[in-house]
Design a protein around this nucleic acid. Sequence first.
DNA 1: TGCCAGGCGGGGT
DNA 2: ACCCCGCATGGC
Length: 319
Amino acid sequence: MAKLHENFSFTFLSPQPFNFHLTASAYNFNWFYNGQSLYLPLSRKPDVVAKIEPVDKELVVKVFSKVSMSKDEVEDKVVFALGLQEELSSFYEIAFNDPLLRYVPLKLKGMHLRCCSPWLALLIALCQQNASFRQGWSMVYHVLELLGLRVEVDGRIVPLPPTPMEVVEAGLKQLKAARLGYRAETLFMAANWLMDYLRGEEPDEASILALKEQVKGIGTYTLRVALLFGARRYEEPPVDRWLVKVVSEAYGQSLKGLSEAEAFIKQRWHEWGGLFAFFTTIVTDAEPGLKAIKRVREGFLEPKFDFSQLTPMTMWRLL
DNA sequence: TGCCAGGCGGGGT
DNA sequence: ACCCCGCATGGC
């Protein structure tokens, strides 16, 4: 197994408000977060992982890689991944009086969405198709476990997300073994197309965007989730049947379908629709349909942090 | 056990 | 622009 050694380190003054642990916890695996440090895969080829820890009012970043990488580039990636430059006050203004997200500016203040690479984000998005929260993230876990490139960082084993080429080389059979079901073909085709199109370059936002036209099985929802987690694109919310139900209940609307729900969300949240969708899953603990509705009705709209249950905020300990 | 779940595309109307 | 179905898995 390859070992990445520490190349250099630097610190940021942590913006205020910024909640490192909430930001690191959400939708994460134990490989990448242990309650203390965040091991953030920053790129493949070259393989780079940033270890990030809060110390007093600073974030200490140690950069692990085989070959040197420019400090500016690493800094930009860390800032973007953690949302350190993100100004949430206009989002909080809407959230403050909101029936769904009213606790977000209070109990989850300073929590930002944590971005990953657009390609990993696409994998995550694909796994959410027609599946519950539990099933979707189990699929992501299996893919990383089976196809990830295991490297040693700071005495830990970290699986780096497989590149498109590595997915192609692993083959359809391996993807089926990762329990992707019929989504395996879509991921395989996407990896094939990106490999040919990019010739080894790391997939960027534009190439992921192009997949909708190029690959059957990647639709509006999948693309929007991918751009939400992979590029911090909040303008176009990923709306699925679950969100239609939750929004209808919370706002007392009888929304007929995806497009009506999307229009309603955009009207209320303006350019923050994607972040609204993200936090809606957080405050309901991503419980399936009827249970989520019940939470909304009872007004229990903050994460439980119950580590005996698999939720977006607890999965880093359980997966 | 059978049925359904944070989608999708192809086929119908 | 709608409605309906099958698709592969896992969980109840």
